[in-house]
Design a protein around this nucleic acid. Structure first.
Length: 508
RNA sequence: GGCCCGUUCGUCUAGCUGGCCUAGGACAUCAGAUUUUCAUUCUGGAGAUCAGGGGUUCGAAUCCCCUACGGGCUACCA
Protein backbone atom coordinates (compact mmCIF):
# COMPACT_ATOMS: atom_id res chain seq x y z
CA UNK A 1 0.00 0.00 0.00
CA UNK A 2 1.05 3.53 -0.67
CA UNK A 3 2.52 5.58 2.13
CA UNK A 4 -0.17 8.19 2.32
CA UNK A 5 -3.58 6.66 2.16
CA UNK A 6 -6.17 9.28 1.41
CA UNK A 7 -9.71 8.31 0.48
CA UNK A 8 -12.80 10.35 -0.08
CA UNK A 9 -16.50 9.87 0.10
CA UNK A 10 -18.00 12.16 -2.51
CA UNK A 11 -21.79 12.22 -2.51
CA UNK A 12 -24.08 14.51 -4.43
CA UNK A 13 -26.52 16.46 -2.33
CA UNK A 14 -29.47 15.40 -4.42
CA UNK A 15 -31.47 13.90 -1.58
CA UNK A 16 -31.00 11.66 1.40
CA UNK A 17 -28.07 9.30 1.28
CA UNK A 18 -29.28 5.75 0.92
CA UNK A 19 -27.71 2.70 2.51
CA UNK A 20 -25.72 1.85 -0.59
CA UNK A 21 -24.02 5.19 -0.26
CA UNK A 22 -23.60 4.68 3.44
CA UNK A 23 -21.88 1.38 2.77
CA UNK A 24 -19.53 3.07 0.32
CA UNK A 25 -18.70 5.65 2.97
CA UNK A 26 -18.18 2.88 5.52
CA UNK A 27 -15.77 0.92 3.33
CA UNK A 28 -13.79 4.06 2.63
CA UNK A 29 -13.69 4.79 6.32
CA UNK A 30 -12.60 1.30 7.32
CA UNK A 31 -9.88 1.32 4.71
CA UNK A 32 -8.61 4.73 5.78
CA UNK A 33 -8.56 3.90 9.47
CA UNK A 34 -6.95 0.54 8.98
CA UNK A 35 -4.10 2.13 7.08
CA UNK A 36 -3.72 5.19 9.22
CA UNK A 37 -4.91 7.29 6.30
CA UNK A 38 -7.21 10.23 5.90
CA UNK A 39 -10.94 10.16 5.24
CA UNK A 40 -12.35 13.08 3.32
CA UNK A 41 -15.90 14.27 2.71
CA UNK A 42 -16.27 16.09 -0.56
CA UNK A 43 -19.61 17.37 -1.74
CA UNK A 44 -20.13 17.03 -5.47
CA UNK A 45 -22.77 19.59 -6.23
CA UNK A 46 -21.92 20.45 -9.80
CA UNK A 47 -25.47 19.81 -10.94
CA UNK A 48 -27.38 22.81 -9.78
CA UNK A 49 -30.64 21.49 -11.14
CA UNK A 50 -30.64 18.52 -8.82
CA UNK A 51 -29.58 20.30 -5.67
CA UNK A 52 -31.81 19.51 -2.72
CA UNK A 53 -31.69 21.75 0.32
CA UNK A 54 -30.81 19.93 3.50
CA UNK A 55 -29.25 16.97 1.75
CA UNK A 56 -25.69 17.88 2.66
CA UNK A 57 -26.63 18.36 6.29
CA UNK A 58 -28.46 15.06 6.19
CA UNK A 59 -25.41 13.24 4.88
CA UNK A 60 -23.23 14.63 7.62
CA UNK A 61 -25.76 13.88 10.33
CA UNK A 62 -26.29 10.34 9.11
CA UNK A 63 -22.62 9.47 8.94
CA UNK A 64 -22.00 11.08 12.29
CA UNK A 65 -24.77 9.00 13.81
CA UNK A 66 -23.12 5.87 12.45
CA UNK A 67 -19.72 6.78 13.78
CA UNK A 68 -18.14 7.35 10.40
CA UNK A 69 -15.81 10.25 11.02
CA UNK A 70 -13.94 12.49 8.66
CA UNK A 71 -10.48 13.98 8.91
CA UNK A 72 -11.16 16.56 6.27
CA UNK A 73 -14.27 17.76 4.63
CA UNK A 74 -16.88 20.35 4.03
CA UNK A 75 -17.90 20.35 7.69
CA UNK A 76 -14.49 20.05 9.35
CA UNK A 77 -12.21 21.89 6.95
CA UNK A 78 -8.70 20.76 6.13
CA UNK A 79 -5.63 21.70 4.11
CA UNK A 80 -7.06 20.73 0.74
CA UNK A 81 -10.23 22.80 0.86
CA UNK A 82 -12.64 23.98 -0.11
CA UNK A 83 -14.39 20.64 -0.10
CA UNK A 84 -17.57 21.60 -1.87
CA UNK A 85 -17.25 21.62 -5.63
CA UNK A 86 -19.49 24.63 -6.10
CA UNK A 87 -16.97 26.50 -3.95
CA UNK A 88 -14.19 25.28 -6.22
CA UNK A 89 -15.98 26.33 -9.37
CA UNK A 90 -13.35 28.86 -10.48
CA UNK A 91 -10.48 26.41 -10.56
CA UNK A 92 -11.95 23.91 -12.99
CA UNK A 93 -11.90 26.19 -16.02
CA UNK A 94 -8.13 26.29 -16.15
CA UNK A 95 -8.00 22.51 -16.29
CA UNK A 96 -10.41 22.27 -19.15
CA UNK A 97 -8.37 25.01 -20.89
CA UNK A 98 -5.26 22.95 -20.33
CA UNK A 99 -6.85 19.99 -22.05
CA UNK A 100 -7.94 22.13 -24.97
CA UNK A 101 -4.43 23.51 -25.36
CA UNK A 102 -3.00 20.02 -25.35
CA UNK A 103 -5.47 18.84 -27.94
CA UNK A 104 -7.24 16.52 -25.52
CA UNK A 105 -10.45 18.49 -25.58
CA UNK A 106 -12.38 20.91 -27.72
CA UNK A 107 -15.21 23.41 -27.64
CA UNK A 108 -18.59 22.22 -28.85
CA UNK A 109 -21.41 24.58 -29.72
CA UNK A 110 -24.16 22.11 -30.48
CA UNK A 111 -27.19 22.99 -28.43
CA UNK A 112 -29.04 20.39 -26.41
CA UNK A 113 -31.95 20.81 -28.81
CA UNK A 114 -29.77 20.14 -31.84
CA UNK A 115 -28.32 17.07 -30.21
CA UNK A 116 -31.77 15.91 -29.36
CA UNK A 117 -32.84 16.12 -32.98
CA UNK A 118 -29.81 14.19 -34.15
CA UNK A 119 -30.41 11.52 -31.55
CA UNK A 120 -33.99 11.15 -32.70
CA UNK A 121 -32.90 10.85 -36.32
CA UNK A 122 -30.47 8.10 -35.41
CA UNK A 123 -33.12 6.43 -33.35
CA UNK A 124 -35.48 6.44 -36.32
CA UNK A 125 -32.87 4.44 -38.19
CA UNK A 126 -32.51 2.18 -35.17
CA UNK A 127 -29.07 3.49 -34.47
CA UNK A 128 -27.63 5.15 -31.42
CA UNK A 129 -25.95 8.48 -31.81
CA UNK A 130 -22.63 8.88 -30.10
CA UNK A 131 -20.58 12.06 -30.09
CA UNK A 132 -17.22 10.52 -30.89
CA UNK A 133 -14.44 10.21 -33.45
CA UNK A 134 -16.92 8.99 -36.03
CA UNK A 135 -19.32 11.91 -35.68
CA UNK A 136 -17.51 14.88 -34.22
CA UNK A 137 -16.29 16.16 -37.57
CA UNK A 138 -19.89 16.60 -38.63
CA UNK A 139 -20.81 18.58 -35.56
CA UNK A 140 -20.51 22.18 -34.58
CA UNK A 141 -17.27 22.43 -32.66
CA UNK A 142 -13.80 23.91 -32.59
CA UNK A 143 -12.54 20.96 -34.62
CA UNK A 144 -14.85 21.64 -37.54
CA UNK A 145 -15.42 25.38 -37.39
CA UNK A 146 -12.89 27.89 -38.72
CA UNK A 147 -10.60 29.24 -35.99
CA UNK A 148 -11.92 32.71 -36.53
CA UNK A 149 -15.52 31.65 -36.06
CA UNK A 150 -14.70 29.75 -32.90
CA UNK A 151 -12.99 32.81 -31.56
CA UNK A 152 -15.96 34.98 -32.41
CA UNK A 153 -18.40 32.59 -30.86
CA UNK A 154 -16.43 32.47 -27.65
CA UNK A 155 -16.01 36.20 -27.51
CA UNK A 156 -19.65 36.84 -28.23
CA UNK A 157 -20.52 34.75 -25.22
CA UNK A 158 -22.16 31.93 -27.14
CA UNK A 159 -23.03 28.89 -25.11
CA UNK A 160 -20.47 26.10 -25.35
CA UNK A 161 -19.36 22.95 -23.65
CA UNK A 162 -15.93 21.41 -23.55
CA UNK A 163 -15.75 17.82 -24.71
CA UNK A 164 -13.03 15.28 -24.19
CA UNK A 165 -11.46 14.14 -27.43
CA UNK A 166 -11.58 10.41 -26.95
CA UNK A 167 -8.92 8.65 -29.04
CA UNK A 168 -10.25 6.60 -31.90
CA UNK A 169 -8.63 3.32 -31.13
CA UNK A 170 -6.74 2.79 -27.96
CA UNK A 171 -6.86 -0.04 -25.46
CA UNK A 172 -7.60 1.38 -22.02
CA UNK A 173 -6.88 -0.62 -18.91
CA UNK A 174 -8.50 0.00 -15.56
CA UNK A 175 -6.79 -1.82 -12.74
CA UNK A 176 -9.52 -2.53 -10.27
CA UNK A 177 -8.69 -3.86 -6.82
CA UNK A 178 -11.85 -5.95 -6.81
CA UNK A 179 -12.26 -6.91 -10.45
CA UNK A 180 -8.72 -7.03 -11.70
CA UNK A 181 -7.77 -5.78 -15.14
CA UNK A 182 -10.76 -4.33 -16.96
CA UNK A 183 -10.01 -3.31 -20.49
CA UNK A 184 -12.04 -1.48 -23.06
CA UNK A 185 -11.32 0.09 -26.42
CA UNK A 186 -11.54 3.87 -26.53
CA UNK A 187 -13.36 3.64 -29.84
CA UNK A 188 -16.45 2.51 -27.96
CA UNK A 189 -16.40 5.53 -25.69
CA UNK A 190 -17.84 8.92 -26.51
CA UNK A 191 -16.59 12.48 -26.21
CA UNK A 192 -17.93 13.21 -22.78
CA UNK A 193 -18.77 16.72 -21.78
CA UNK A 194 -16.19 17.92 -19.29
CA UNK A 195 -17.33 21.45 -18.84
CA UNK A 196 -20.94 22.51 -19.05
CA UNK A 197 -22.45 25.61 -20.60
CA UNK A 198 -23.45 26.85 -17.16
CA UNK A 199 -19.82 27.24 -16.23
CA UNK A 200 -19.74 24.15 -14.04
CA UNK A 201 -17.60 21.10 -14.66
CA UNK A 202 -19.27 17.74 -15.04
CA UNK A 203 -18.65 14.98 -12.57
CA UNK A 204 -15.88 13.54 -14.68
CA UNK A 205 -13.71 16.63 -14.80
CA UNK A 206 -14.35 17.81 -11.27
CA UNK A 207 -13.81 14.36 -9.89
CA UNK A 208 -10.46 13.80 -11.53
CA UNK A 209 -9.18 17.29 -10.83
CA UNK A 210 -10.23 17.15 -7.19
CA UNK A 211 -8.94 13.67 -6.58
CA UNK A 212 -5.62 14.79 -7.98
CA UNK A 213 -5.51 18.07 -6.09
CA UNK A 214 -6.60 16.40 -2.89
CA UNK A 215 -3.94 13.76 -3.27
CA UNK A 216 -6.43 10.89 -3.19
CA UNK A 217 -4.72 7.51 -3.19
CA UNK A 218 -7.71 5.18 -3.52
CA UNK A 219 -11.07 5.65 -5.14
CA UNK A 220 -13.60 3.30 -3.55
CA UNK A 221 -17.00 3.81 -5.13
CA UNK A 222 -20.04 2.00 -6.45
CA UNK A 223 -19.97 -0.26 -9.46
CA UNK A 224 -22.18 2.14 -11.41
CA UNK A 225 -18.96 4.08 -12.00
CA UNK A 226 -17.08 1.25 -13.59
CA UNK A 227 -18.22 2.10 -17.14
CA UNK A 228 -16.81 5.61 -16.82
CA UNK A 229 -13.58 4.51 -15.18
CA UNK A 230 -11.83 4.18 -18.57
CA UNK A 231 -12.65 7.82 -19.27
CA UNK A 232 -11.18 8.73 -15.93
CA UNK A 233 -8.04 6.80 -16.68
CA UNK A 234 -7.78 8.66 -19.97
CA UNK A 235 -8.21 11.96 -18.18
CA UNK A 236 -5.35 11.18 -15.84
CA UNK A 237 -3.28 10.42 -18.89
CA UNK A 238 -4.36 13.61 -20.65
CA UNK A 239 -3.40 15.68 -17.65
CA UNK A 240 -0.11 13.87 -17.31
CA UNK A 241 -1.07 12.61 -13.86
CA UNK A 242 -0.70 8.92 -14.54
CA UNK A 243 2.02 8.49 -11.95
CA UNK A 244 -0.22 9.60 -9.14
CA UNK A 245 -3.44 8.14 -10.42
CA UNK A 246 -5.38 6.62 -7.53
CA UNK A 247 -6.13 2.92 -7.27
CA UNK A 248 -9.72 2.00 -8.06
CA UNK A 249 -12.09 -0.32 -6.27
CA UNK A 250 -15.61 -0.62 -7.63
CA UNK A 251 -18.04 -1.99 -5.08
CA UNK A 252 -20.85 -4.39 -5.99
CA UNK A 253 -24.30 -2.86 -5.88
CA UNK A 254 -26.97 -3.28 -3.24
CA UNK A 255 -29.96 -4.90 -4.90
CA UNK A 256 -33.68 -4.86 -4.32
CA UNK A 257 -34.67 -7.63 -1.88
CA UNK A 258 -37.39 -8.75 -4.23
CA UNK A 259 -37.05 -9.05 -7.96
CA UNK A 260 -34.17 -7.41 -9.67
CA UNK A 261 -32.40 -4.15 -10.05
CA UNK A 262 -30.39 -1.97 -7.78
CA UNK A 263 -31.88 -0.77 -4.57
CA UNK A 264 -33.56 2.55 -5.06
CA UNK A 265 -34.95 5.20 -2.84
CA UNK A 266 -38.46 4.02 -3.49
CA UNK A 267 -37.94 0.44 -2.43
CA UNK A 268 -37.62 0.82 1.28
CA UNK A 269 -41.05 1.67 2.48
CA UNK A 270 -42.60 -0.47 -0.19
CA UNK A 271 -40.90 -3.51 1.32
CA UNK A 272 -41.08 -2.58 4.95
CA UNK A 273 -37.54 -1.59 5.73
CA UNK A 274 -35.72 1.71 5.61
CA UNK A 275 -33.32 2.49 2.80
CA UNK A 276 -32.14 5.59 4.58
CA UNK A 277 -30.10 5.90 7.74
CA UNK A 278 -32.25 8.73 9.06
CA UNK A 279 -35.84 9.69 8.47
CA UNK A 280 -36.15 12.12 5.60
CA UNK A 281 -38.89 14.52 4.71
CA UNK A 282 -38.79 15.65 1.14
CA UNK A 283 -38.65 19.45 1.12
CA UNK A 284 -40.84 19.71 -1.97
CA UNK A 285 -43.37 16.90 -1.81
CA UNK A 286 -43.35 16.57 1.95
CA UNK A 287 -43.11 12.81 1.50
CA UNK A 288 -41.57 11.07 4.49
CA UNK A 289 -39.16 8.16 4.17
CA UNK A 290 -38.33 6.08 7.20
CA UNK A 291 -34.86 5.83 8.63
CA UNK A 292 -32.91 3.19 10.53
CA UNK A 293 -32.43 5.48 13.47
CA UNK A 294 -36.13 6.18 13.89
CA UNK A 295 -36.97 2.52 13.30
CA UNK A 296 -35.01 1.59 16.37
CA UNK A 297 -31.80 0.26 14.90
CA UNK A 298 -28.59 0.80 16.80
CA UNK A 299 -25.97 2.59 14.75
CA UNK A 300 -23.49 -0.15 15.59
CA UNK A 301 -25.90 -2.72 14.17
CA UNK A 302 -26.42 -0.77 10.97
CA UNK A 303 -22.68 -0.54 10.51
CA UNK A 304 -22.35 -4.26 11.10
CA UNK A 305 -25.18 -5.09 8.70
CA UNK A 306 -23.80 -2.89 5.97
CA UNK A 307 -20.25 -4.12 6.42
CA UNK A 308 -21.48 -7.66 5.76
CA UNK A 309 -23.37 -6.77 2.62
CA UNK A 310 -20.59 -7.40 0.16
CA UNK A 311 -17.77 -8.21 2.50
CA UNK A 312 -16.94 -10.88 5.05
CA UNK A 313 -13.90 -11.63 7.14
CA UNK A 314 -13.59 -15.25 6.04
CA UNK A 315 -14.12 -16.45 9.59
CA UNK A 316 -17.35 -17.42 11.27
CA UNK A 317 -17.51 -14.31 13.39
CA UNK A 318 -20.39 -12.08 12.41
CA UNK A 319 -20.67 -9.53 15.16
CA UNK A 320 -18.08 -6.85 14.70
CA UNK A 321 -17.59 -3.53 16.42
CA UNK A 322 -16.35 -0.65 14.32
CA UNK A 323 -12.85 -1.16 15.66
CA UNK A 324 -12.97 -4.86 14.87
CA UNK A 325 -14.12 -4.03 11.36
CA UNK A 326 -11.26 -1.62 10.96
CA UNK A 327 -8.84 -4.34 11.98
CA UNK A 328 -10.37 -7.08 9.86
CA UNK A 329 -11.36 -5.20 6.73
CA UNK A 330 -9.67 -5.83 3.43
CA UNK A 331 -10.56 -4.79 -0.07
CA UNK A 332 -9.50 -8.18 -1.39
CA UNK A 333 -12.35 -9.81 0.49
CA UNK A 334 -15.05 -7.64 -1.00
CA UNK A 335 -17.30 -9.78 -3.17
CA UNK A 336 -17.89 -9.09 -6.82
CA UNK A 337 -21.60 -9.69 -7.07
CA UNK A 338 -24.46 -7.55 -5.86
CA UNK A 339 -26.12 -8.26 -2.53
CA UNK A 340 -29.76 -8.19 -1.56
CA UNK A 341 -30.73 -6.66 1.72
CA UNK A 342 -32.27 -9.19 4.10
CA UNK A 343 -34.64 -7.65 6.60
CA UNK A 344 -34.73 -10.73 8.87
CA UNK A 345 -31.00 -10.87 9.17
CA UNK A 346 -30.88 -7.15 9.81
CA UNK A 347 -33.28 -7.64 12.70
CA UNK A 348 -31.14 -10.43 14.03
CA UNK A 349 -28.10 -8.20 14.01
CA UNK A 350 -29.99 -5.56 15.92
CA UNK A 351 -31.18 -8.21 18.36
CA UNK A 352 -27.59 -9.22 19.00
CA UNK A 353 -26.66 -5.65 19.80
CA UNK A 354 -29.72 -5.32 22.00
CA UNK A 355 -29.05 -8.34 24.16
CA UNK A 356 -25.39 -7.54 24.57
CA UNK A 357 -25.95 -3.95 25.50
CA UNK A 358 -25.14 -3.01 29.07
CA UNK A 359 -28.29 -3.42 31.20
CA UNK A 360 -28.18 0.08 32.58
CA UNK A 361 -27.80 1.58 29.14
CA UNK A 362 -30.57 -0.57 27.76
CA UNK A 363 -32.78 0.40 30.68
CA UNK A 364 -32.21 4.07 29.96
CA UNK A 365 -33.30 3.57 26.37
CA UNK A 366 -36.30 1.55 27.43
CA UNK A 367 -37.16 4.10 30.10
CA UNK A 368 -37.90 6.60 27.33
CA UNK A 369 -40.26 4.17 25.66
CA UNK A 370 -42.01 3.40 28.92
CA UNK A 371 -42.34 7.08 29.64
CA UNK A 372 -44.13 7.56 26.34
CA UNK A 373 -46.50 4.69 26.98
CA UNK A 374 -47.56 5.20 30.56
CA UNK A 375 -47.18 7.27 33.63
CA UNK A 376 -43.95 7.61 35.52
CA UNK A 377 -42.15 4.31 35.82
CA UNK A 378 -39.49 3.72 38.38
CA UNK A 379 -36.05 3.40 36.75
CA UNK A 380 -35.07 0.59 39.10
CA UNK A 381 -38.03 -1.41 37.93
CA UNK A 382 -37.22 -0.73 34.28
CA UNK A 383 -33.71 -1.90 34.93
CA UNK A 384 -34.91 -5.08 36.60
CA UNK A 385 -37.29 -5.85 33.77
CA UNK A 386 -34.91 -5.41 30.85
CA UNK A 387 -32.74 -8.49 31.32
CA UNK A 388 -35.88 -10.58 31.80
CA UNK A 389 -37.35 -9.78 28.40
CA UNK A 390 -34.53 -8.63 26.16
CA UNK A 391 -34.04 -12.08 24.60
CA UNK A 392 -37.46 -11.66 23.06
CA UNK A 393 -36.84 -8.36 21.38
CA UNK A 394 -35.14 -7.09 18.26
CA UNK A 395 -35.71 -3.43 19.03
CA UNK A 396 -36.02 -1.37 22.16
CA UNK A 397 -39.63 -0.72 21.24
CA UNK A 398 -40.33 -4.46 21.23
CA UNK A 399 -39.47 -4.48 24.89
CA UNK A 400 -42.71 -2.71 25.61
CA UNK A 401 -44.82 -5.46 24.06
CA UNK A 402 -42.92 -7.98 26.08
CA UNK A 403 -42.88 -6.14 29.37
CA UNK A 404 -45.93 -3.94 29.31
CA UNK A 405 -47.63 -5.82 32.15
CA UNK A 406 -44.84 -4.89 34.55
CA UNK A 407 -46.03 -1.32 34.31
CA UNK A 408 -49.75 -1.57 33.61
CA UNK A 409 -52.20 -4.12 34.98
CA UNK A 410 -53.93 -6.21 32.32
CA UNK A 411 -57.13 -4.69 30.94
CA UNK A 412 -58.35 -7.92 29.44
CA UNK A 413 -57.63 -11.62 29.63
CA UNK A 414 -56.85 -14.03 26.82
CA UNK A 415 -60.10 -15.85 26.01
CA UNK A 416 -58.36 -18.96 24.75
CA UNK A 417 -56.51 -19.45 27.99
CA UNK A 418 -59.63 -18.85 30.03
CA UNK A 419 -61.48 -21.46 28.07
CA UNK A 420 -58.66 -23.95 28.42
CA UNK A 421 -57.51 -23.41 32.00
CA UNK A 422 -60.04 -21.51 34.07
CA UNK A 423 -62.17 -23.88 36.14
CA UNK A 424 -64.90 -23.39 38.70
CA UNK A 425 -62.60 -23.78 41.64
CA UNK A 426 -59.90 -21.56 40.18
CA UNK A 427 -60.99 -18.40 42.05
CA UNK A 428 -60.85 -20.23 45.34
CA UNK A 429 -57.32 -21.42 44.73
CA UNK A 430 -56.11 -18.10 43.41
CA UNK A 431 -57.48 -16.34 46.47
CA UNK A 432 -55.64 -18.82 48.67
CA UNK A 433 -52.46 -18.38 46.68
CA UNK A 434 -52.81 -14.62 46.94
CA UNK A 435 -52.88 -14.96 50.71
CA UNK A 436 -49.99 -17.36 50.71
CA UNK A 437 -47.86 -14.99 48.67
CA UNK A 438 -48.83 -12.11 50.91
CA UNK A 439 -47.88 -14.00 54.01
CA UNK A 440 -44.53 -15.15 52.68
CA UNK A 441 -41.89 -14.08 55.15
CA UNK A 442 -39.39 -12.91 54.16
CA UNK A 443 -40.88 -12.13 50.78
CA UNK A 444 -38.83 -13.21 47.78
CA UNK A 445 -39.63 -14.80 44.48
CA UNK A 446 -38.01 -18.03 45.56
CA UNK A 447 -39.93 -18.13 48.82
CA UNK A 448 -43.15 -17.36 47.02
CA UNK A 449 -42.39 -20.08 44.50
CA UNK A 450 -41.77 -22.67 47.16
CA UNK A 451 -44.87 -21.81 49.15
CA UNK A 452 -47.13 -21.84 46.12
CA UNK A 453 -45.74 -25.14 44.89
CA UNK A 454 -46.25 -26.54 48.35
CA UNK A 455 -49.90 -25.50 48.23
CA UNK A 456 -50.37 -27.06 44.81
CA UNK A 457 -48.89 -30.34 45.96
CA UNK A 458 -50.77 -30.48 49.24
CA UNK A 459 -54.05 -30.07 47.42
CA UNK A 460 -53.08 -32.42 44.60
CA UNK A 461 -53.76 -29.74 42.04
CA UNK A 462 -52.72 -29.62 38.42
CA UNK A 463 -49.63 -27.40 38.33
CA UNK A 464 -50.15 -26.29 34.79
CA UNK A 465 -53.68 -25.26 35.36
CA UNK A 466 -53.04 -23.20 38.47
CA UNK A 467 -49.89 -21.58 37.16
CA UNK A 468 -51.50 -20.61 33.90
CA UNK A 469 -54.41 -19.02 35.65
CA UNK A 470 -52.10 -17.18 37.99
CA UNK A 471 -50.16 -15.96 34.97
CA UNK A 472 -53.35 -14.94 33.26
CA UNK A 473 -54.30 -12.88 36.28
CA UNK A 474 -51.01 -11.06 36.42
CA UNK A 475 -50.15 -10.78 32.75
CA UNK A 476 -53.45 -11.11 30.93
CA UNK A 477 -52.00 -13.61 28.51
CA UNK A 478 -49.94 -16.77 28.26
CA UNK A 479 -46.65 -15.02 27.85
CA UNK A 480 -43.82 -13.45 29.74
CA UNK A 481 -40.83 -14.55 31.74
CA UNK A 482 -40.77 -16.75 34.81
CA UNK A 483 -43.95 -16.20 36.81
CA UNK A 484 -42.25 -15.75 40.14
CA UNK A 485 -39.77 -13.33 38.67
CA UNK A 486 -42.83 -11.34 37.68
CA UNK A 487 -44.32 -11.64 41.14
CA UNK A 488 -41.01 -10.62 42.65
CA UNK A 489 -41.01 -7.42 40.67
CA UNK A 490 -44.71 -6.61 41.00
CA UNK A 491 -44.57 -7.04 44.76
CA UNK A 492 -47.18 -8.36 47.16
CA UNK A 493 -49.71 -5.59 46.93
CA UNK A 494 -49.86 -5.39 43.16
CA UNK A 495 -49.93 -9.16 42.86
CA UNK A 496 -52.88 -9.32 45.20
CA UNK A 497 -54.68 -6.53 43.41
CA UNK A 498 -54.32 -8.23 40.07
CA UNK A 499 -55.47 -11.59 41.36
CA UNK A 500 -58.48 -9.96 42.97
CA UNK A 501 -59.35 -8.16 39.78
CA UNK A 502 -59.01 -11.30 37.67
CA UNK A 503 -61.17 -13.29 40.00
CA UNK A 504 -63.81 -10.58 39.95
CA UNK A 505 -63.71 -10.12 36.21
CA UNK A 506 -63.33 -13.56 34.71
CA UNK A 507 -66.60 -15.44 34.44
CA UNK A 508 -67.06 -18.84 32.87
C1' G B 1 -28.97 -2.33 -29.54
C1' G B 2 -23.64 -1.50 -27.86
C1' C B 3 -20.01 -1.86 -23.93
C1' C B 4 -18.68 -3.47 -19.07
C1' C B 5 -19.43 -6.41 -14.60
C1' G B 6 -21.44 -10.60 -12.40
C1' U B 7 -23.76 -15.95 -11.60
C1' U B 8 -22.49 -21.47 -4.90
C1' C B 9 -28.82 -23.34 -0.28
C1' G B 10 -34.94 -18.60 -0.14
C1' U B 11 -31.11 -14.55 1.66
C1' C B 12 -25.83 -13.07 3.12
C1' U B 13 -21.86 -15.91 2.06
C1' A B 14 -17.13 -19.81 2.87
C1' G B 15 -14.58 -21.90 -1.12
C1' C B 16 -10.20 -18.04 -4.73
C1' U B 17 -2.62 -20.67 -5.32
C1' G B 18 -7.45 -27.40 -8.61
C1' G B 19 -7.78 -33.24 -4.73
C1' C B 20 -9.13 -32.38 2.90
C1' C B 21 -16.24 -30.41 -0.88
C1' U B 22 -20.48 -36.93 -0.17
C1' A B 23 -19.83 -27.96 -0.85
C1' G B 24 -19.09 -25.27 5.35
C1' G B 25 -21.40 -21.18 8.37
C1' A B 26 -25.19 -17.44 9.49
C1' C B 27 -30.41 -15.60 8.90
C1' A B 28 -35.09 -17.62 7.72
C1' U B 29 -37.65 -22.48 7.90
C1' C B 30 -39.10 -27.46 9.96
C1' A B 31 -38.89 -31.25 13.96
C1' G B 32 -37.64 -32.88 18.84
C1' A B 33 -36.01 -31.73 23.87
C1' U B 34 -36.41 -28.24 28.01
C1' U B 35 -40.28 -24.94 30.36
C1' U B 36 -46.11 -23.62 34.64
C1' U B 37 -47.05 -20.06 29.42
C1' C B 38 -45.03 -17.35 25.25
C1' A B 39 -40.26 -16.64 24.04
C1' U B 40 -35.39 -18.10 24.85
C1' U B 41 -31.97 -22.10 24.91
C1' C B 42 -30.28 -26.90 23.20
C1' U B 43 -30.25 -30.90 19.62
C1' G B 44 -31.36 -32.46 14.94
C1' G B 45 -33.48 -32.06 9.78
C1' A B 46 -34.48 -30.21 5.11
C1' G B 47 -32.30 -26.86 1.80
C1' A B 48 -27.22 -25.23 -3.66
C1' U B 49 -25.64 -31.80 -8.84
C1' C B 50 -21.73 -24.89 -7.33
C1' A B 51 -26.48 -21.01 -14.11
C1' G B 52 -26.01 -24.56 -18.58
C1' G B 53 -22.71 -26.80 -22.13
C1' G B 54 -17.96 -27.85 -23.80
C1' G B 55 -12.90 -28.35 -22.88
C1' U B 56 -7.80 -28.73 -19.93
C1' U B 57 -6.48 -32.49 -16.11
C1' C B 58 -5.49 -38.75 -13.17
C1' G B 59 -8.88 -35.20 -10.68
C1' A B 60 -12.67 -28.70 -11.30
C1' A B 61 -17.28 -25.03 -7.58
C1' U B 62 -12.12 -23.84 -8.27
C1' C B 63 -8.35 -22.95 -14.89
C1' C B 64 -10.04 -21.85 -20.35
C1' C B 65 -14.03 -21.17 -24.08
C1' C B 66 -19.15 -20.69 -25.55
C1' U B 67 -24.23 -19.91 -24.33
C1' A B 68 -28.00 -18.30 -21.05
C1' C B 69 -29.59 -15.26 -17.37
C1' G B 70 -29.04 -11.02 -14.07
C1' G B 71 -27.14 -6.21 -13.27
C1' G B 72 -24.72 -1.54 -14.47
C1' C B 73 -23.65 2.18 -17.99
C1' U B 74 -24.83 4.28 -22.54
C1' A B 75 -27.24 12.92 -20.55
C1' C B 76 -24.47 19.79 -20.84
C1' C B 77 -26.97 13.56 -13.70
C1' A B 78 -23.93 12.18 -10.35
Amino acid sequence: MADNIRVRFAPSPTGPLHIGGVRTALYNYLFARQNGGKMILRIEDTDQTRFVPGAEQYIIEALTWLGIEFDEGVHVGGPFGPYRQSDRKEMYRQYSDQLIENGWAYYAFDTPEELDIIRKQYEAEKKAFQYDASTRDKMKNSLTLPTEEVKNLLESGAAFVVRFKMPENEEIHVQDLIRGDVKVNSGLLDDKVLFKSDGMPTYHLANIVDDHLMDISHVIRGEEWLPSAPLHVMLYKAFGWEDTMPMFAHLPLLLKPDGNGKLSKRDGDRLGFPVFPLRWTDPVSGEVSSGYRESGYFPEAVVNILAFLGWNPGTEQEIFSMQQLIDAFSIERISKSGAKFDLEKAKWFNHQYLIHRDDTELAQLFQNVVAEKCVNADFERVKEVCPLVKERASFVNDLWDQAKFFFVAPESYDEQIIKKRWKEDTPTHLNRISEIIASTQPFSKDQAHDRVMEYIQQNSLNTGQIMNCLRLSLVGAAMGPDLFAIIGILGIEETQNRIRKAVDTIKI
